[in-house]
């Protein structure tokens, strides 16, 4: 009986909260927020907050065409794998008061798991057989190479700061350290790293100006060109989830992660309330990070050429992260 309850609980956390459903909903909401605020920054009214959700449901209702030159299995499986891996990854982040599986993967694993959706996108695009997609996957891969260096430097800086002379890739420990010493963002040696991370997020998510891979004006949305219907919807969902995931990761690494713990009134009520409050606070933080690193940057810049993008990440952003790492290494 207990086992069944436990299994049900796990299933709940995998599929609903904080798993797939929750992540999707929040991701779509974040994406909608991004679009809305972007529009307001451009003095437009902008789409409704639920626009990404509408887009997603609309795509579910469309036909799915598989081009004759495509490899059907890979073409259709790629978006599903991407979404599933993202949904599962959420469970490894200790960003909620309730983080069932955060002990089961550390930073390096997160780094690699993050590549799976990108690889899924690349494989799907490649499998579609379109030459536009060929260009798109090339760019996607270069973008990945570009942001991976700053990302690992940021991770190492965080690990060194929180772990001292011990190996510390565990997210739980990073969160615990921050609970004790205050969020990492407020340690001045980590500020460059946080900035670098803020630059990594839009590249990882693929928003302008770092969206060379999916430039719809030049290469017809690159890897996505042949996708239609539900698979396309899943890719759009992936982007939305990634948005949430990356901002949440930022919150975990630099803003202390698990929010607050409040106990009010009866225990059960307090638990429920604190869960709700945690979620709300996290959401607010994610919104702020999204605003800062994606919307604002998007509003004031134009798309970078791929070679410039690569250079930017390996010089400016990696430089920022490296400064942090060296400062931390020097014990600051």
């Amino acid at each position: 009986m207990e086992l069944i309850l436990k299994a049900l609980g796990t299933l709940f956390s995998v599929l609903i909260y904080p798993g797939f459903l929750f992540v999707s909903a929040v991701g779509l909401l974040l994406a909608g927020f991004d679009r809305k605020v972007l529009a307001r920054m451009q003095k437009r009214v902008g789409p409704p907050l639920l626009q990404p959700a509408y887009d997603f449901f609309k795509l579910l209702g469309k036909e799915t065409l598989v081009p004759s030159r495509a490899n059907k299995a890979v073409f259709l499986a790629a978006p599903v794998i991407g979404t599933a891996s993202l949904a599962v990854m959420m469970l490894f982040l200790p960003i909620f008061g309730r983080a069932p599986l955060s002990l089961r993967a550390d930073l390096i694993v997160i780094l690699y798991l993050l590549t799976i959706p990108a690889v899924a996108l690349i494989l799907g695009g490649s499998a579609s057989g379109s030459p536009f997609a060929g260009i798109g996957i090339s760019r996607e891969m270069v973008v990945m190479m570009a942001y991976e260096l700053p990302l690992i430097l940021v991770f190492l800086a965080v690990a060194r700061k929180t772990g001292g002379s011990e190996l510390c890739f565990s997210l739980e420990r990073i969160v615990a350290w921050q609970a004790e010493h205050g969020p990492l963002l407020f340690h001045w040696a980590m500020i460059p790293a946080a900035l670098a991370m803020l630059f990594v997020i839009p590249a990882e998510v693929g928003t302008q100006p770092f969206d060379a891979a999916e430039a719809e004006t030049e290469i017809c949305e690159g890897p996505l060109i042949e996708y239609s219907g539900a698979p396309l919807g899943l890719f759009k969902l992936n982007t939305a989830i990634k948005m949430f995931l990356m901002t949440a990761l930022f919150c975990t690494l630099f803003l202390g992660g698990s929010g607050v713990t409040v106990t009010l009134g009866p225990i059960w009520l307090g638990a429920a309330l604190s869960a709700l409050l945690n979620t709300l606070i996290l959401l607010a933080l994610c919104l702020a990070v999204t605003l800062l690193c994606m919307t604002l940057v998007h509003a004031v810049t134009a798309r970078l050429k791929i070679e410039h993008l690569f250079r930017f990440y390996w010089t400016v952003v990696a430089g920022l992260a490296l400064i942090s790492l060296i400062l931390v290494w020097l014990g600051l």
């Binding site: 797939f20 891996s85 469970l91």
Partner: peptide, 28 residues
Amino acid sequence: WLILLVIVLLAFFLVILTGEKTRGAVLD
């Protein structure tokens, strides 16, 4: 991780199977 992934995938396929009527057909 793999088990979780499989669970999510299964959930997907369940949705797809039950929702076959609501979705546009997959055409190849």
